[in-house]
């Protein structure tokens, strides 16, 4: 999404309506905008906002602008920025929180990534590992884009040739992790 660069930010709103972001903001408050995170990030080239830019918006309470960006969704959790941040901020963890926040809101521009994650983890939940055929089928079905499978066809063939993808039908094998997932969900809801 293109940002209206010329839009002035009203700092008066900083204290209001940012409840969603409060917890994340508290994590990065000591930030001094030195740019170490951006310089360290291996995925920075693909992001629409640099990490420094995005954290600055977080600090200024710009929830909507932050969630409109793809920056956090591209974080591959390599932890380089956390390692190098001179303030020792838990940046990777904060990125994770942003992903969760975005997932709860089912943001349209992150729909594809969201569904990908959801179906991936659903497959793991069912089988104890990912069943690529089932996972991709469900993903394609939910994306409701008939052209989408074609985009993956070439890669799928290559993976098949190398034996990286199995054409086994989904089965309810012994590796089910449902109980584990349920337990974790229960524990998380308690805390």
């Amino acid at each position: 999404m293109a940002l209206a660069e010329e839009t002035a930010i009203d700092l008066g709103a900083m204290t209001q309506a940012t409840a969603a972001l409060d917890e994340i903001r508290a994590m990065v408050r000591p930030c001094i905008q030195c740019g170490t995170c951006t310089g360290s990030c291996p995925n920075e080239f693909a992001m629409d906002l640099t990490p420094r830019h995005m954290w600055r918006l977080v600090l200024l309470g710009r929830t909507e602008e932050v969630l409109a960006s793809r920056t956090f969704s591209l974080c591959s959790a390599c932890y380089l920025c956390s390692l190098r941040c001179p303030r020792g901020l838990p940046l990777t963890e904060a990125m994770g929180r942003l992903k969760q926040l975005a997932a709860r809101r089912r943001l349209p521009h992150l729909r594809s990534g969201n569904l990908f994650y959801r179906n991936f983890i659903a497959s793991v939940r069912r089988h104890g590992r990912v069943r690529e055929m089932e996972f991709m089928s469900l993903y394609f079905a939910q994306m409701m884009n008939p052209w989408l499978p074609l985009r993956y066809a070439g890669m799928g063939m290559r993976l098949l040739r190398r034996g990286k993808v199995e054409l086994r039908l989904p089965s309810r094998g012994s590796g089910r992790l449902v109980n584990l997932f349920d337990k974790v969900a229960e524990m998380e809801s308690r805390s």
């Binding site: 660069e5 010329e6 839009t7 002035a8 930010i9 009203d10 700092l11 008066g12 905008q33 420094r52 830019h53 600055r56 918006l57 200024l60």
Partner: peptide
């Protein structure tokens, strides 16, 4: 007060 944020490159205003 209006000031340009150097990171965002955008004006910030505050009353």
């Amino acid at each position: 007060v209006t000031v340009t944020d150097p990171v965002l490159g955008r004006p910030l205003t505050v009353t």
